[in-house]
Every structure is written in structure tokens, then in C-alpha cells.
């Protein structure tokens, strides 16, 4: 566990967290150019569903293409992330973040997919900030729900 004791600790903690939040907000906005900027060239990712880990997706461009493909049928997306741990050792960091996501079907605005997941990521210092070098997404719960949005508040 890394205890924040100095200004440098606080700065690293905030900037590393910002990179993780930016990953989510760019996915939500389908801002794939922005998404690419938070990934290291040699980044890799894999995800686990139902206790089974999929193969690694190797390289930043391949990850962006994978996200594009996996979210193609989604309209509004909302990845609500909370960064729990950031452990920094020199120019490397590891992080644990909890996620609750809502993703509305592009062809059915009354249907949403909700997921409860955890990210275990690695990051590398890059200039004044941090880029992601590894993503492990463990999906613990997936649920499809429907609700007539014409009856929703707002």
C-alpha cells in the first residue's frame, strides 16, 4: 500500500487516477483518438467473464479497435469508476478501480446493460502524466434491463 506523504505522492496519485478516468470518459464518448492517448504503445488488455480470462489484446491500436468493436451496438454509455488503490514505485504504478457501468442499446433506447466490474491496471510515467500499459477487466455481474424511457424522470 502506498501512503500519500508528500506533494509528489499526491501529484502522482491524482495524475495516474486522471488517466484511468479519462480512459472511461473517452470510451463513453467514443472518442477513440482520446482513448489512444491514454494507452502506451505496447499496452495490452484482457477481460474475464464468468471466471474465464480471454486472450490478451496486444498493442494500443488493437485495444482501441477492440473497444470500438465491443461498443458498436451501444448508444449512451456511462462508466462510473472509483479508483481504490494507486501504488506507485518510481515510474511504474498499479491500480485497482471499481466500475459500475450503464450502456444503453443503440437500437433500443429502453434497454440498458449494467455491469459490475473491477479494473486491475498497470501504468507507466509519461512526461508529466501517466499512460496505461496493462488492463485487466474482471466482469463480475452483467444484467440486461428494460424500462420505457418515456416514463423516466426528466
Amino acid at each position: 500500500m502506498t501512503i500519500v506523504r508528500t506533494f509528489e505522492d499526491a501529484r502522482d496519485r491524482i495524475n495516474a487516477s486522471d488517466t484511468l478516468y479519462r480512459y472511461c470518459s473517452t470510451v463513453d464518448q467514443k472518442d477513440f483518438v482520446g482513448l489512444r492517448t491514454v494507452l502506451a504503445e505496447d499496452a495490452r488488455m484482457r477481460f474475464c467473464l464468468g471466471g474465464t480470462w480471454n486472450e490478451w489484446v496486444e498493442g494500443a491500436d488493437a485495444i482501441v479497435a477492440w473497444v470500438d468493436k465491443m461498443t458498436a451496438d451501444r448508444g449512451f454509455q456511462h462508466h462510473l469508476l472509483s479508483v481504490y488503490h494507486v501504488d506507485i514505485e518510481g515510474d511504474q504504478a498499479s491500480a485497482l478501480a471499481y466500475l459500475t457501468s450503464h450502456q444503453v442499446a443503440a437500437d433500443d433506447p429502453d434497454q440498458v446493460m449494467q455491469m459490475s466490474s473491477r479494473y486491475r491496471n498497470l501504468l507507466r510515467r509519461d512526461g508529466d502524466g501517466w499512460v496505461i500499459t496493462q488492463i485487466e477487466l474482471e466482469v463480475g455481474w452483467v444484467e440486461i434491463r428494460t424500462f420505457d424511457q418515456s416514463q423516466a424522470i426528466g
Partner: peptide, 12 residues
């Protein structure tokens, strides 16, 4: 000075 809220999903 500005607060702008947009909703993407709601359900009861």
C-alpha cells in the same frame, strides 16, 4: 457558475 446536467438512462 454553470451547471449542465444531461441524463442518459433512468428507470423506476
Amino acid at each position: 457558475s454553470v451547471k449542465d446536467f444531461s441524463q442518459g438512462w433512468s428507470e423506476a
